[in-house]
Amino acid sequence: MSVDDSTALLAWYDRHARTLPWRAAPGASPPEPYRVWLSEVMLQQTTVAAVKPYFALFTSRWPTVETLAEADEGEVMAAWAGLGYYARARNLIACARAVARDHGGRFPDSEEGLLGLPGVGRYTAAAVAAIAFGRRAVVVDANVERVVARRFAVAESLPGCRPQLRELTDSITPNQRAGDFAQAMMDLGATICTPRGPACGVCPLLDRCAAAKAGMAEAYPVKAAKKARPTRIGTAFWVERDGHVLLCRRPDKGMLGGMRALPSGPWTAQDPGLAEAPIRANWRPLGRVGHIFTHFALDLAVVAADAPDRAADGEWWPIARLDEAGLPTLFAKAAALAQKAAQTGELMRL
């Protein structure tokens, strides 16, 4: 079974592999481990299209793990802004520093060694071990889960079936070309075995796929009913003075940790109003912005005021250069709302 699956899939990959900036061509020498690790961290819960420009930026500014380890943390967090899931950026810095400090700038070449690095979990360790070092490793991301769930028509729903999906992936992972096989599975899930409308007719595993044979490919993987996502409410404060806006650095732990942001009060089930406002002022409402996090939706009111001086705690940032501040998407939306209000005169009329 494993030989049939892997042989068919690798033959398909040799002809149809995606060309990506962090990859080597099928059958070629493995890519540099730093590039593999960086791309895998960026790709977690993020699309390839979104990652490409960030990967180019990071590898241009910090071409090696040593240069990333020496980088200013604020600059790295700012460069990450907009990519989301900001704990990944903090882990990225911690891991780079550990590799530089404890491993002489070289990534461990085994899953076990990689798992000892900060922020490196089971998936990333397996992916780097297989792709960068050619180790046989069982690499399972969301694309692979979907391919395997359909290939074997796994009846149990996610997330409970994940141990079974891992075992089944193990059963078809070859001893040779494990890195190419892992990337072939990812490519298959991304381009053919897609969540909706899978192109079963051109799939290299069609003759072996239990779900396709039953005409039920889209029924897999079976997913448990989603829980309702709660909504939280908050307020963002646009404080302006002499062409500058007040920014703060969010606490390292918690949502958007370590990022520059507009001052913001608590995010709670009930409207917090002006709680934790950075200054006492006559606040003017500008509107609201929304953002979806993994576990909740946020409804954020944006209010504005002019500061009498620059005594407030924080960083006064030139509004004309606000795009250089590295604001996360939520606060970039709030800032855009405030700037639009200023341009149209709404801020002065409110």
Results as ranks from 00 to 15, higher is better:
Asp5Ser: 13
Ala8Glu: 12
Leu10Cys: 06
Tyr13Leu: 11
Trp22Ser: 06
Ala24Phe: 11
Pro26Cys: 11
Gly27Cys: 12
Ala28Arg: 07
Pro30Asp: 10
Glu32Ile: 07
Glu32Asn: 13
Glu32Val: 14
Pro33Phe: 02
Val36Asn: 04
Trp37Thr: 04
Val41Tyr: 01
Val41Pro: 00
Gln45Cys: 08
Thr46Trp: 11
Thr46Ala: 12
Thr46Asn: 12
Phe58Val: 01
Glu73Lys: 04
Val76Pro: 01
Ala79Leu: 12
Trp80Thr: 05
Arg88Ala: 09
Arg90Asn: 04
Leu92Ala: 01
Ile93Cys: 10
Arg97Gln: 13
Val99Phe: 02
Ala100Gln: 09
Arg101Ile: 00
Phe107Pro: 02
Asp109Lys: 05
Gly113Glu: 14
Pro118Tyr: 07
Arg122Lys: 14
Arg122Gly: 02
Tyr123Ile: 05
Tyr123Thr: 04
Ala125Phe: 06
Ala126Asp: 11
Val128His: 06
Ile131Asn: 08
Ala132Gln: 13
Asn143Thr: 07
Val148Cys: 02
Arg150Pro: 01
Phe152Cys: 13
Glu167Ile: 08
Pro174Met: 11
Arg177Glu: 15
Asp180Gly: 06
Gln183Cys: 07
Met185Ser: 03
Met185Trp: 05
Met185Asp: 05
Asp187Lys: 07
Ile192Tyr: 05
Cys193Val: 09
Arg196Gly: 10
Cys200Ala: 03
Gly201Ile: 01
Leu205Glu: 10
Leu206Asn: 06
Glu218Ser: 08
Ala219Lys: 15
Ala219Met: 10
Val222His: 10
Ala224Trp: 01
Ala224Asn: 05
Ala228Val: 14
Pro230Ile: 06
Gly234Thr: 05
Ala236Met: 09
Glu240Asn: 10
Arg241Pro: 02
Asp242Met: 10
Arg250Trp: 14
Arg260Pro: 03
Gly265Phe: 07
Gly265Cys: 05
Gly273His: 08
Gly273Gln: 07
Pro278Cys: 06
Asn282Tyr: 12
Arg284Leu: 14
Pro285Cys: 13
Val289Pro: 00
Ile292His: 06
Ile292Arg: 07
His295Gly: 15
His295Ser: 14
His295Pro: 05
Phe296Gln: 09
Phe296Gly: 00
Leu298Pro: 03
Leu300Lys: 01
Leu300Trp: 03
Leu300Pro: 02
Asp309Gln: 11
Trp317Cys: 11
Ala320Tyr: 00
Arg321Thr: 12
Glu324Leu: 14
Gly326Glu: 05
Pro328Leu: 03
Pro328Glu: 11
Ala332Leu: 15
Ala332Ile: 10
Ala332Met: 15
Ala335His: 03
Ala335Glu: 04
Gln339Val: 06
Ala342Gln: 08
Ala342Gly: 00
Gly345Asp: 09
Gly345Gln: 11
Leu347Gly: 02
Leu350Glu: 12
